[in-house]
Design a protein around this nucleic acid. Structure first.
Length: 804
RNA sequence: GGGCGGUUAGCUCAGUUGGGAGAGCACCAGCUCGACAAGCUGGGGGUCACUGGUUCGAGCCCAGUACCGCCCACCA
């Protein structure tokens, strides 16, 4: 063993060995209790980024921990086809070649997507392997695979037959950049500087007018009403009358609706059902028509008359000029408000009224709400449950059709008479009239529609496979908050709807890792840190340790020091192992603790193990790494190993055997976080029967000497003193050791007796004050009062020892 | 507009029912003898954002303020 641990080569070797020996595999006929996590499927064209690496580290710790605890641990891998994202990539590539979608046609385009995936996709699984992620790679799934597609079709058919899926004309979010609709969840509201234009609409009868304020004058050509609040005294007399929309020169009703804010603008608002979400709702409730003057390309349509084909900006200029000529323009002023933008392309969303496919969500959400409320699904951090509930309780219909070519095509066919035939496979004839002339719906399904099935479609659903039987429902979903609604909420209701129970019991939300300056990590900002670079430079173990160490219940900044710490820990462990192994004589591991410091380290290992288990069970990975760090550095290396060194050199077989047994134990506790270095050291231990990855997690604590559970370092010295042990320490350690023989001298040796006396007097008066307080003595827990009494006595003894 | 989170050492962050302010890194000093200088030991350094309240006692509980971040939303 070399003095400096070099993860390069070692890590790859173990990754290959583990996978080749089938140690990542989980089998459906394994009788042990299953433990299942589905990897959130990365986009097939993505490369590993920090979020993937952190989340994979967390999941792998849980999987490896459970595997050692004798669970049948399945970590399910796979990819998502990333509908809009990949379509946009491909569209840009075509454009770079001077081609458009129309030039290549649908069939060829889809083939190009598959080619692209074959050539450039599917890289993350390889990158996850270099992280040591123990996924069952044999079970890899892709949402566009034939089998998975069958599941998507069945899911559609199921929801369609129960009436949850329907086709309807409603207001949608149209993204001109993607040339598709997107769901409400894919729209970001961003503050923009705009202009608010105040326009006079003359009354149809008489001379008066009503002034409205709008940020989008061109849409006035599609106005269908003017609305005011029903309680607004200023306008009550006008409700039921008509106003003339200028330029369009149409009369529209003046209506009353409570959704109008009387405080805003003049308190009167133009209603444009075809181009605004709230107007659309008001329009539906008042049975108003839904004309449109803006087309799919964002330009004015023929309905706009002489303004047809103009851009909205051009149309606005013309309209404002005309209004001014006629004296109907009251004023224009700067106005800042939030406007929907496409999450994918960044383009401004155009609300349009289109015929699309929808999922009616209200009924489907109810069992998911119940599952969250009843604690059948828990979240970490817990507050996220509230967030999820408020989303589900206010859920709205989900637009699932996309005007794309890359994705699962909607399994619906139309005959020339307009009859609708839904079929999981291609039908031969119209279900209604028998016509053989069928045309399939052109649209594909929202990518998230297929992602919702991930926990069971990956297991073979709709077939009743052994995998489905054994591995559903799973246990943990670990993910970022950014896809909470898009993915997690949908898996929950879909799982309950299809299989009767939620797909997992726990949802763990990991930190978002920000750049060191607090900005988002992003390629375009140049703030990204590449985790594969960290792995190459510091090793996978150090990277895993570092990411888990810096993770938290909230978002955190990237900390290079945490990775460095991981590297030091691996090196420290490596070197203490060298010490123990190279001085083990012919001893075989066996726990024969005789000296007090040996019983002490067993107690420390027990105690640390209990803490680690508790932290992992609560998804507190940073706390677990902290325990591991101090256990290894302080307790195991700096005190225990130092203390037994002389006996190791002297060839004391009991000490050697015990040291190896304790090392074994330490390696097991570290393995889930740092699998490679621990497996490598493990392979150097004598008489290994199994790999560490499948070695049993140590027996539960309980056998150790309870009275030895002191705090680490000081207590070690205390233990040595009581044991009469005089380990060979260096001069500094010797000084501490001696000082601990008389604990009251520790601080005084530093020189400042007066300050120490003062401190003790303060402490004594504080403790006396508390104990003299009847309410404290009466109300505080007994242990707290007793602890206070003990402290008081100790302080008094220490003060006496100082001669005061 | 609604909701959630944050503000603790130079930096990144812990701090579990209220009871002696912590870790890692960085910095300083010493040690460096047969695992490791990517080591060991020690040290300096904090008005726990601010104001008020509850309490014998508040980083922690309550009310409010400021600043930062995130999510949701039909602010025309």
């Amino acid at each position: 063993m070399e003095p400096l641990y070099n993860p390069g080569g070692v890590e790859e070797r173990w990754q290959h060995t583990w996978e080749e020996e089938g140690l990542y595999n989980a089998e459906a006929d394994d009788p042990r209790e299953p433990f299942v996590i589905c990897l959130p499927p990365p986009n097939v064209t993505d490369r590993l980024h920090m979020g993937h690496a952190l989340n994979a580290s967390a999941q792998d710790v849980l999987i490896r921990w459970h595997r050692m605890r004798d669970f049948n641990a399945l970590w399910q891998p796979g990819y998502d086809h990333a509908g809009i994202a990949l379509q946009n990539v491909m569209t840009r590539r075509l454009a770079a070649e001077g081609k458009s979608l129309k030039d290549v046609g649908r069939e060829e385009f889809v083939q190009l997507c598959w080619d692209f995936i074959r050539d450039y996709g599917g890289q993350i699984m390889g990158q996850l392997r270099t992280l040591g992620a123990s996924l069952d790679y044999r079970r890899h799934r892709f949402t566009m695979d034939e089998e998975y597609t069958r599941a998507v079709m069945r899911f559609f058919a199921h929801l369609y037959s129960k009436g949850y899926i329907y086709r309807g004309t409603r207001i949608v979010n149209w993204c001109s950049g993607c040339a598709s609709t997107v769901s409400d969840l894919e729209v970001n509201h961003i503050e923009v500087d705009d202009t608010l234009t105040w326009i006079r609409y003359p009354l149809a009868e008489g001379d008066g007018h009503v002034t409205i304020a709008t940020v989008r004058p061109p849409t006035m050509l599609a106005d269908v009403a003017v609305a005011v609040h029903p309680d607004d005294e200023r306008y009550r007399h006008l409700v039921g009358k008509e106003a003339i929309v200028p330029i369009a020169e149409r009369a529209v009703p003046i209506i009353a609706d409570e959704r109008v804010d009387p405080e805003f603008g003049t308190g009167a608002v133009k209603i444009t059902s075809g181009h605004d979400a709230m107007d659309w709702e008001i329009g539906r409730d008042h049975n108003l028509p839904e004309p449109m003057v803006i087309g799919l390309d964002g330009r004015m349509t023929a309905e706009a008359g002489e303004l047809a084909d103009l851009t909205q900006e051009e149309a606005e200029e013309r309209i404002v000029a005309r209004l001014e000529e006629r004296g109907l323009l009251e004023k224009r002023e700067p106005f800042r408000h939030s406007v929907g933008h496409c999450d994918r392309s960044g383009d401004r969303i155009e609300p349009l009224v289109l015929l699309q496919w929808w999922v009616e969500m209200e009924e489907l959400a109810k069992p998911a709400i119940a599952a969250l409320r009843e604690g059948r699904v828990h979240t970490r951090p817990e507050q996220q449950t509230k967030v999820m509930l408020s989303y589900l309780e206010n859920i709205r219909p989900w637009c699932i059709s996309r005007q794309l070519w890359w994705g699962h095509r909607i399994p619906v066919w139309y005959c020339p008479d307009g009859h609708v035939t839904m079929a999981e496979g291609e039908p031969e004839a119209c279900a209604e009239c028998g016509s053989g002339e069928l045309r399939q719906d052109e649209d594909v399904l929202d990518t998230w529609f297929s992602s919702a099935l991930w926990p069971f479609a990956t297991l073979g659903w709709p077939e009743q496979t052994p995998e489905l039987e054994t591995f559903y429902p799973g246990d943990v979903c670990s993910t970022g908050r950014d896809i909470n609604f898009l993915w997690v909420s949908r898996m929950i209701w879909a799982g309950i709807e299809i299989l009767g129970e939620p797909p997992f019991e726990w949802v763990n939300y990991h930190s978002m890792i920000l750049a060191t300056d607090g900005r988002r990590m992003s390629k375009s900002l140049g703030t990204g840190v590449d985790p594969t670079g960290l792995i190459a430079e510091h090793g996978a173990d150090a990277t895993r340790y570092g990411l888990l160490k810096m993770s938290s219940s909230q978002d955190v900044r990237f900390s290079p020091g945490a990775i460095e710490e991981g590297r030091k820990l691996a090196n420290k462990l490596w070197n203490v192992s060298r010490l123990l192994l190279e001085n083990a004589g012919g001893a075989k591991p066996g726990l024969r603790p005789q000296a007090l410091e040996e019983r002490w380290i067993v107690a420390r290992l027990d105690s640390a193990q209990a803490q680690i288990s508790e932290h992992l069970a609560q998804f507190e990975f940073a706390a677990a790494t902290n325990v591991l760090y101090h256990l290894t550095f302080d307790d195991f290396c700096d005190w225990y190993a130092e203390a037994i060194k002389p006996r190791l050199y002297d060839g004391d077989e009991d000490a050697q055997a015990t040291a190896l047994a304790n090392l074994e134990r330490l390696l097991k506790l570290l393995h889930p976080v740092m699998p490679h270095v621990t497996e490598e050291i493990w392979s150097n231990l004598p008489d290994r029967q199994t790999r560490l990855i499948v070695a049993p997690w140590p027996e539960a604590a309980g056998a150790h000497d309870v009275e030895l559970e002191f705090e680490p370092i000081q207590s070690a010295a205390e233990v040595f003193r009581r044991a009469g042990v005089r380990p060979t320490l260096n001069e500094e350690q010797e000084r501490i050791f001696v000082s601990v023989v008389k604990p009251e001298r520790v601080k005084v040796d530093g020189g400042n007796v007066e300050a120490e006396v003062e401190r003790l007097r303060d402490e004594i008066s504080r403790a006396e004050g508390m104990l003299a307080n009847e309410r404290f003595v009466r109300n505080a827990p007994e242990e707290v009062v007793a602890a206070e009494r003990e402290k008081l006595e100790r302080y008094r003894r220490e003060l006496d020892a100082l001669g005061n």
